[in-house]
């Protein structure tokens, strides 16, 4: 443990912490844009600068580790001026698009601009213009809104292990791109979308479905596979308008393409919402759950009486949860009376 002072407050923290982490553990907020607690430090936005006694220049708190006796001040008039300058510079190259932007209300840049009252008018100049739209099916990549914080690059590498994105070009033309500036063609897990602090990365299917007005968040478990990630569905009326996941879930907020983007079936008109029984004519006939289950049970019984229980086999799915698979084998063994039970993952 090392002791230091942050804004004259004595604090004691483990020695490998950054100043930013030490501050946040002690309830002191430092503005950040490129930092993400689940990713390695980057140090690009420079908003998190603080003043450290004895240092000639402000230091980036997200990349500087604490040391014994350090005296940190997180806000001085000079530091705030420098932060404003950085925000001015970012906004000087940013479309003034909050009105129609999907990120409004959950955009870290918008929030900081609001907090500092910065409009991006102090250093007007050229803006990056990218007319071409990425043709991939899932992720809208509006690189004009990208602040090059590098989070998407890091998450894709450090969390997903895919390395589909990186910085390209240099200077003002620097840009985050898939190789050869092709359309994104990756796993479409959407981790990058989830860590993007701005509206540069959004889900294509989110567009104009709802941002925060009338949108409720409902936590649930992803039905796609046995991992059982915890999802947060954003529901407007009775429709899911996007899916996210929170960092403190067992899945740490990370999802796969199905969990994140495969939610349209929920309100699909083709979805079966009532059981169907195929009658002798070959036609399906809507029925109730009770009726359907009784019908199935009756058939099981009939088969068992005529051919013994071993004439019945059960095949479960690796996509079911552990609990569901447990129940299924129990049902087969204790209910039906056979050990003929297996699942797809053995193949």
């Amino acid at each position: 443990m090392v002791s230091l002072t942050i804004n004259n407050k004595k604090v004691s923290v483990p020695e490998d912490l950054t100043i930013l982490e030490a501050a946040s553990r002690n309830g002191i907020k430092v503005p950040t844009l490129c930092h993400h607690p689940q990713l390695t430090p980057f140090g690009g936005c420079r908003l998190c600068v603080v003043s450290v006694k004895g240092m000639p220049k402000p230091v980036a708190s997200c990349t500087t580790t604490v040391s014994e006796g350090m005296e940190v001040t997180t806000s001085t008039p000079e530091i705030e001026d420098l932060r404003k300058l950085v925000l001015e510079l970012i906004l000087s190259d940013h479309p003034n698009d909050c009105m129609t932007c999907e990120a409004t209300g959950s955009c870290a840049l918008q929030e900081l601009a609001y907090a500092y009252g910065v409009r991006g008018e102090a250093y007007p100049g050229e803006r990056r213009v990218y007319a071409k739209r990425d043709g991939n099916p899932f992720i809208e990549r509006d690189m004009e809104k990208c602040i090059l914080c590098g989070r998407c690059v890091k998450v894709c590498d450090e969390v997903q292990g895919v390395e589909a994105l990186d910085f390209t070009y240099r200077g003002f033309r620097s840009k985050i791109c898939p190789s050869y500036e092709d359309d994104l063609d990756c796993e479409f897990c959407g981790q990058c979308v989830s860590v993007c602090p701005t509206g540069a990365l959004t889900g294509k299917q989110w567009a104009r479905r709802g941002r925060y007005e009338g949108v409720r968040e409902v936590d649930t478990t992803c039905p796609y596979c046995g991992t059982g990630c915890t999802l947060t569905t954003h529901v407007k009326g009775n429709e899911i308008v996007r899916v996210s996941s929170k960092p403190w879930t067992p899945n740490e907020g990370w999802l796969c393409v199905k969990g994140r983007f495969g939610y349209k079936y929920v309100s699909s008109p083709d979805r079966l919402t009532k059981p169907l029984i195929r009658r002798a004519s070959g036609e399906f006939e809507e029925t109730s759950w009770t009726a359907a289950l009784e019908y199935t049970a009756a058939w099981f019984k009939k088969i068992r009486e005529k051919h013994s229980a071993d004439a019945i086999g059960g095949l479960s799915s690796a996509r079911c949860t552990n609990e569901e698979n447990y129940l299924f084998q129990k049902f087969m063994r204790a209910g039906v009376g056979t050990n003929n039970v297996d699942h797809c993952a053995r193949l």
Binding site: G44, R46, L89, E126, F172, S174
Partner: peptide
């Protein structure tokens, strides 16, 4: 292109 003051600042 990594940090804002250099990437955008020198452009301005």
């Amino acid at each position: 292109g990594k940090c804002v003051p250099c990437r955008v600042g020198t452009k301005r």
